[in-house]
Design a protein around this nucleic acid. Structure first.
Length: 876
RNA sequence: GGGAGCGUAGCUCAGUCGGUUCAGAGCGUCUGCCUUACAAGCAGAGGGUCGGCGGUUCGAAUCCGUCCGCUCCCACCA
């Protein structure tokens, strides 16, 4: 055995063992005859850096993988990164801006060149960081969602769904940033309560009757684009408007009055102006009623010539002017102050302008139905189960998926347009040309124009569990799965956040069903969101997120892993607290020191095993088995933090505080061989139990326990198996522990030094076998019966214990304490007897419960008797 | 507004089928200890009307209703 340093120094051992694991390719997996256990990483953004959410997620993944590996499975954890089109493109745009380059001043090709440079420079940093955490990924299998093979899979998938008739082009409202000159995603829009006005505008009937209706709007500058006035069909106030036509103020264009349930009769005047081109809801109403779409605002947020009035003016300037004109013409009824949420661009802070544009969509209905069935049938389990409701809600209300994005970084949509506007969808430009030539013979490649948009990032991530193994399969279900895909698919568990349950989880289920005719994973474990102590989401802006690498350096990777797991009960948000990591560090120290103790013992082969040690071994052996069962149970339910806590307590409390104290040889003496060997075996099992959670320190200690050869590792040692458990013995031991604590309590109270031996009188059911333990740990000689004279006494269950403490006894204090306890017991007895006296209870309750009450009664009686005896001994 | 969830010790959370002495764990707090592995430690102790009210039941932290407080997701009403 090697000499251990006085303190565990994580930074000195972590890199050493990680390199050792890599050198020996312990993380690498190839299909073989063993049962596979597969996890694909939720791919982090390629240019991202490790944050606490990653730490939590990847620690959980790593625990599961390492556990499976020790259970003898062929464990494979596939790592990789996501190209994250929006986030990455934003970063590149920002970087270019810093260099004085605007995105729109350079070509797509130039931009992509910069983007790839950026990716090469920053890409994969996060994967390097995961190594520091101890993640046991099969790095040989590292994938990137935009590498050529995966791109091919994405393109093939697009063509597949297009040919199947599920992908179509449609018009949709996008969030247009008139300053940034670009569409922004919903995620990049911030809604802020903003003070504005509600303008009440009169619309006169076109029949010349002079009658009018009033609408309330926050955007009077759009009235020139009005296509209709809408009322609720159930609104009796406006029955007279049915079928009528009104004139749009200022431009005097005639528009119909239509009826739609969308209108809220309570809000405003109950009349709604419908402006399909400039409001998402209005657009939908317009679609339902076949209204014309009139766009009057251009890409810069200015009114165009179709507006007729205020042409060329900025929308906000136009608003003022329109209001003025309305007032002059007698169309303005009143102006109210009004506060409502307004959408702003996260980047330019410009007010978002809803704008119509043509996008690509994937029909969701059938895919969603299938994805729902996979979960409803129980084939895929969501943990915690409450997310099933969320999932169902999503799947039942799924809208078609808008898969196009107005970006450059990503997989470009494989649609090619002919000059006449017709288009073909093919996997390659060559095939596109071929197809185009069928439509227009003689057309050349140069005349074809590929769609400018790229695909939504999720359109590549939903293939992830398939494409990391076999990129030829997506889009080609007829393609025979390769060896990897047949072996590793479906994967076992997915660990991810509930915020992407629809974006990612559900869509992987869809892709799996479509291309594999199988589920992509069996269990989905949802982690919470990591928050700070005040409950705020950790974010860069707030600066409340610690740098995991700094923490790892400071406390060690094992401590960080433990710390995260300790505060992460499944499905709840994580309130991160650095003290949890300190706790992890302390635990490392405890483990380390316990081995320092044992490894320093001198062993005497000839010595006999003391009785106290024999009993200690018997006890810990039983307790170990029981705990292993509990831990397995916890793992099977993904209650990782409970599993950890069970091992933590076994290691710290049971093994260190109780077991080692029992078998520890007296100062200067040797330990017998039998006890020593068993103790080493126990320690070995404890290390293996905790290894999935704390890979580094366990490898370090396991290696130092014995002469190990290169290529040996704790990683592949089997998880310890539970033997039979003697529950009665364990219960009896718990009583003994209570008695020891009682004696120690008396010592603390009376300031009696641990070295001073005491007498302990025991009345009640105890195991005499445990007496040597009592004597060793309580430093008390055990007698049966009740002590005479002044004693300090206590109860453990129904066992009456008394310790003669002549000269030290505070008689009146002792009497007060005992009397209070006696009162409590009498009250308890009374309540139990009331229950038993209730005929209805005895008649209805199960026999076992009634029996339990009778036992309570008997126990209470015996305790009362013991207490009275103690009081009598004190002369009361 | 629609959907989901939460409320148990100072903090973070367990608590299964309503029923064992069930009111728990870890951390923190308090007290005493530098006891020859560990003060990043050891020993001991205190701490909760299970959010409020009502109901079902022989029996409720657990089931039902209702109110209060909080969180998340979706829509973000002209």
């Amino acid at each position: 055995m090697n000499e251990l340093s006085a303190k565990y120094n994580p930074s000195q051992v972590e890199d050493k063992w990680y390199d050792y694991w890599i050198r020996n390719r312990f993380f690498h997996s190839e299909p073989d005859s063993r049962e596979p256990y597969t996890i694909v990483i939720p791919p982090p953004n390629v240019t991202g850096i490790l944050h606490m959410g990653h730490v939590l997620n990847n620690t959980l993944n790593d625990v599961l993988v390492r556990k499976a590996r020790m259970d003898g499975k062929n464990a494979c954890w596939v790592p990789g990164t996501d190209h994250a089109s929006i986030a990455t493109e934003n970063k590149v745009v920002a970087k270019l801006k810093g260099m004085g380059i605007e995105k729109h001043d350079i070509s797509r090709e130039e931009f992509l060149k910069y983007a790839w440079e950026w990716k090469e420079e920053h890409g994969g940093i996060i994967l390097e960081q995961l190594r520091k955490l101890g993640a046991s990924c099969d790095w040989d299998r590292t994938k990137f969602t935009m590498e050529p093979a995966l791109n091919k899979a994405v393109t093939a998938t697009f063509v597949y769904f297009y040919n199947k008739g599920l992908i179509y082009r449609g018009v949709r409202m996008v969030n247009w940033d008139p300053e940034g000159h670009t569409a922004v995603s919903d995620e990049e829009v911030i809604h802020q309560e903003t003070k504005s006005h509600l303008y009440h505008v009169k619309y006169f009937l076109s029949d010349g009757s002079g009658k009018y209706l009033t609408i309330a709007t926050t955007r009077p500058e759009t009235i020139m684009a009005d296509a209709a006035i809408c009322i609720n069909p159930n609104d009796e106030r406006y029955g007279w408007l049915r079928g009528k036509k009104v004139l749009v103020p200022l431009v005097n264009r005639e528009i119909p009055v239509i009826e739609d349930d969308y209108v809220d009769m309570e809000f405003g005047t109950g009349c709604l102006k419908v402006t399909p081109a400039h409001d998402a809801h209005d657009y939908e109403i317009g679609m339902r009623h076949n209204l014309p779409v009139l766009e009057i605002i251009d890409d810069h947020g200015r009114l165009n010539e179709k507006a007729v009035v205020c042409v060329g003016q900025d929308r906000f300037v136009a608003r003022e002017n329109v209001v003025k004109m309305l007032e002059e013409q007698g169309n303005l009824e009143k102006i109210e102050d009004y506060t409502s949420p307004v959408a702003y661009s996260e980047r330019s802070h410009a007010v978002i302008e809803p704008k119509l544009s043509t996008q690509w969509f994937l029909k969701m209905e059938d895919l969603a139905k299938m994805a729902l069935e996979c979960v409803e049938s129980g084939r895929i389990k969501l943990i915690p189960d409450k997310y099933r409701a969320t999932y169902r809600h999503w799947m039942e209300t799924a809208h078609d998926w808008c898969i196009s994005r107005q970006l450059w970084w990503g997989q470009r949509i494989p649609a090619w347009y002919l000059p006449d506007g017709r288009f073909v969808v093919e996997e390659t430009p060559e095939k596109a040309l071929e197809a185009a030539q069928k439509l227009q013979p003689g057309i050349t490649q140069a005349e074809l124009r590929q769609d400018e948009d790229v695909l939504d990032t999720w359109f590549s991530s939903w293939l992830w569990p398939i494409s990391v193994f076999d990129s030829d399969r997506p889009g080609h279900p007829e393609h025979k799965p390769n060896r990897d895909l047949s072996y590793y698919y479906p994967t076992n568990d997915l660990v991810t956040g509930p915020d992407i349950i629809f974006f990612w989880v559900a869509r992987m289920v869809m892709a799996g069903g479509e291309f594999m005719d199988d589920i992509p994973f069996r269990n989905v474990y949802f982690t919470g969101i990591v928050r700070d102590k005040q409950g705020r989401k950790m974010s860069k802006q707030l600066g409340n997120s610690p740098d995991p690498l700094v923490l790892i350096k400071q406390y060690g990777a094992d401590a960080v892993r433990i710390g995260m797991l300790l505060c992460s009960s499944a499905g709840n948000d994580i309130f991160y607290d650095e003290s949890m990591i300190e706790q992890g560090r302390n635990f490392c120290g405890k483990i380390w020191n316990s081995w320092r103790l044992v490894s320093g013992w001198r062993v005497d082969d000839g010595a006999a095993q003391p009785e106290s040690a024999r009993v200690a071994v018997k006890w810990f052996d039983n307790l170990l088995s029981r705990t292993i069962c509990e831990v397995e149970e916890f793992y099977s339910k993904f209650r990782i933090s409970d599993a950890l806590m069970a091992i933590y307590r076994l290691f710290w409390d049971s093994y260190c505080s109780w077991y080692l104290e029992m078998v520890k040889p007296a100062f200067g003496e040797a330990v017998d061989r039998r006890t020593f060997d068993t103790t080493v075996t126990f320690f070995d099992k404890l290390l293996k139990l905790i290894h999935p959670v704390m890979p580094f320190i366990t490898e370090e200690l396991w290696q130092s326990m014995d002469k190990r050869r290169e290529g040996e590792t704790i990683m592949f040692q089997g998880t310890p198996k539970a033997g039979p458990v003697d529950d009665k013995f364990l219960a009896a031991f718990e009583t003994a522990q209570g008695m020891i604590a009682g004696v120690r309590g008396i010592r603390a109270q009376k300031q009696i030094a641990p070295k001073q031996a005491l007498d302990l009188y025991v009345a009640g059911e105890t195991l005499p076998e445990l007496d040597p333990v009592l004597e060793k740990l309580a430093n008390a000689k055990v007698f049966r019966g009740t002590a005479e004279g002044p004693v300090s006494s206590f109860l453990v269950g129904t066992v009456q214990c008394s310790v003669p403490v002549s000269g030290l006894i505070d008689t009146s204090g002792e009497i007060t304490r005992l009397q209070a306890e006696l009162e409590h017991q009498k009250g308890f007895l009374e309540s139990v007897r009331r229950k038993l006296g209730n005929a209805s209870f005895v008649a209805h309750a199960p026999a076992a419960v009634v029996e339990g009450e009778r036992k309570k009664e008997a126990d209470a009686l015996s305790r009362i008797e013991a207490l009275e005896k103690s009081l009598a001994a004190l002369g009361k």
